[in-house]
Design a binder for these strands. Sequence first.
DNA 1: GTCTATATCAAGATAGAC
DNA 2: GTCTATCTTGATATAGAC
Lengths: 179, 179
Amino acid sequence: MTITPRAREIADAALQLLEAEGAEGLTMRRLADRLGIRAPSIYKHLPDKEALETAIISIGFELQTAAFETALEGSADPLAALASAYREFAHANPHLYRLMTERELDRARLTPGVEARAALPVHEAVGGDPDLARATWAFAHGMTILELDRRFPPDADLDAAWRRGLEAIHSATPRRRGR
Amino acid sequence: MTITPRAREIADAALQLLEAEGAEGLTMRRLADRLGIRAPSIYKHLPDKEALETAIISIGFELQTAAFETALEGSADPLAALASAYREFAHANPHLYRLMTERELDRARLTPGVEARAALPVHEAVGGDPDLARATWAFAHGMTILELDRRFPPDADLDAAWRRGLEAIHSATPRRRGR
DNA sequence: GTCTATATCAAGATAGAC
DNA sequence: GTCTATCTTGATATAGAC
């Protein structure tokens, strides 16, 4: 779904609200407060709350794509660079990260192409093997969300766990000529 | 937290309700209906809804532990056996699996030891390396929850992605004498 | 594009009697 | 251990005027 400029402003404000107050803090009333309008006015720009959330998620994919691009600039180890960028993105925007990952995606309502654009660099970094790319995403998402939810023991060395997993993936990655 | 027999009956019914109707279906009123009592009566046995949820999660860990034990009996490849059992457990009890993983755990309210007992076989299967065990759990959880939430493309070969990831982990697992 | 007023609903939880 | 009655809260969303 493409979106009017005003709807985009509203979604930007919603993202700020989401990160400031968490998922339960994201209500139409509070969002309206933040915008200086009344809640029913929002419905003139976005049909319902789901559309609002999907608009936020589209912004999230754009931010993630940008983070990946920055991370890859002049990096000698693309996989490690993307993994760090992924982890840092989630820690910088934990509520957004949860919103983006903890549910089924209503892809028909996303800005077209945003999801695939965000995923592309990972596919390239593992040499184009789609199965390995999915396994890599699963590992990264698992580490990230379990860390955000504090599911590892408090004394766990998560840097070491990330390293151990990336090593394993690296050793399973097909080599290109010249590497 | 340990629990009275009646509270355990209530938690068992709550688990059935959860799997039948999903997380939003799990309300004190509907649970009471299923038990043939009124909602306020539940509060004589469990202090609040969080205690109910934590009791369900404790049961979940017990079920998972049992599933792991069955899977390991006479298996030549413990890691593969545990991975299959993990995946099957989640698919057989998807709402329970989400409840168990998609939030911070209130460990003080769990039945003591249940979480560690469920995790132990995985630690053993990767040769006792705690970092590799965490990476393995992250991979398995990531695959599982992304699959439950239909986040992979519909044509993705998820068996192949599981295999690819487990291969990578296996090649990173320290060998024991005689293997 | 924004407003006021309101419909609609359903949740968790408590008091106090039996 | 269960009941009835009720409090309290707060959410999404619509109608219709300006």
